[in-house]
Design a protein around this nucleic acid. Structure first.
Lengths: 192, 192
DNA sequence: CGATTCTTTGAAAACAGTCAATCTGTGTGG
DNA sequence: CCACACAGATTGACTGTTTTCAAAGAATCG
């Protein structure tokens, strides 16, 4: 399982074998099955999660029980609630597995230690944060300005591989549109 | 004008007088008048902007000319396009002044130099980034799940002082709702 | 095969958006 | 100081789209 991570990280960051070994030594391997929760609302998020295999979903609920998907994380992506992890405050989010998955976990403390000892990792981690910021901005703009059809098309175009693995009602939830609307859009697109 | 910045930064970060002086020495003071642009779409963003006085708006347009407000920045806040600034790529955004304003500017290079020499500033800057990330997440969740009325109420509650200074159609644009809808909501709320 | 999950579809209702007109207050220039 | 233009806000009539509710068809899995 660690093999996938090594392949990933080597491609992104220049690391010595010792660095790699250090990172590995504090990682916890975990297998999660479909529908299993890795984080619950109200809980303090304990780990930074790297997905080796499978697919996770981060979502949040409202008082009425409706679920709203914030993020999908397939293999070679990350998941966590940075706010809860950093501040050790109760999280608003749930993280669960949409497929049987294999993940690696690092505690806040261990990851901070790694960043302190491996500057290249720290700066890569910062780069990821700013990438996330940009993705978030783009999503806000899309939420403000795009029609449901545009949102749907953007999503399919941006994440073709993820799209194929997610039930439509979760895509709808991610886009902030009803399932019915998405279904209608698809129907209309078939006729072209 | 620098006085406002000093008051602000002293409250947030423990800095020596030399640090402060260094920061000041590379800052550029600028006065912008209402409606004046500080950044245009297509341009590379050159500065990190601190607002000493006044109110800025960051927005983006679609091909049809419609404007969508990403952010309002009143005094003691920051504005910039981090993506364009960091990568030196053309920006998607406009930044303009909603009121006559006084701002401080730092180039990417100078600010990086400051962060290198003043670790406390660097970590404060990182903290701001993660705060922005959290605000962005919250906004995405709200865009996905809240009704127009809830969005409006949240906005008024979160930014009462800013709200009072912004024309309603810009609030509507920020919330991703038509001016008409906001007007209706206000009307309905009056009757309670 | 039975059960669950997923997707489509229909009918009706609710809602937000567009267009356009009006009203207000502000500020500018003659 | 008045007149006029301008920016902002409200309102009405209408349109169009999305949602809700519900049911029924597919597909998948154990």
């Amino acid at each position: 399982m660690i093999a996938e991570f090594k392949r990933y990280i080597k491609e992104k960051v220049k690391l010595s074998e010792e660095d790699l070994e250090l990172i590995r030594s504090v990682a916890v391997e975990k297998i999660v099955r479909r529908k299993q929760l890795l984080l619950q609302q109200g809980e303090v998020c304990r780990y930074k999660i790297f997905i080796c295999k499978g697919l996770l979903r981060t979502y949040r609920t409202r008082e009425d029980g409706s679920e709203h998907v914030m993020m999908f994380s397939p293999e070679t992506w990350w998941a966590t609630d940075p706010e809860s992890l950093n501040n050790q405050t109760p999280s608003f989010y749930y993280i669960d597995a949409l497929e049987d998955s294999e993940v690696l976990l690092w505690t806040k403390k261990d990851f901070a230690m790694l960043c302190a000892k491996i500057p290249a990792l720290k700066s890569y981690s910062e780069k990821l944060i700013s990438t996330n910021l940009n993705i978030g901005r783009q999503r806000i703009f899309s939420a403000l300005s795009a029609t449901p059809e545009e949102k749907y098309d953007e999503f399919v175009a941006s994440y073709p591989n993820i799209f194929a693995r997610i039930p439509l009602h979760m895509v709808a939830s991610y886009l902030g549109v009803s399932l019915k609307t998405l279904s209608r859009i698809r129907q209309a697109q078939l006729k072209r």
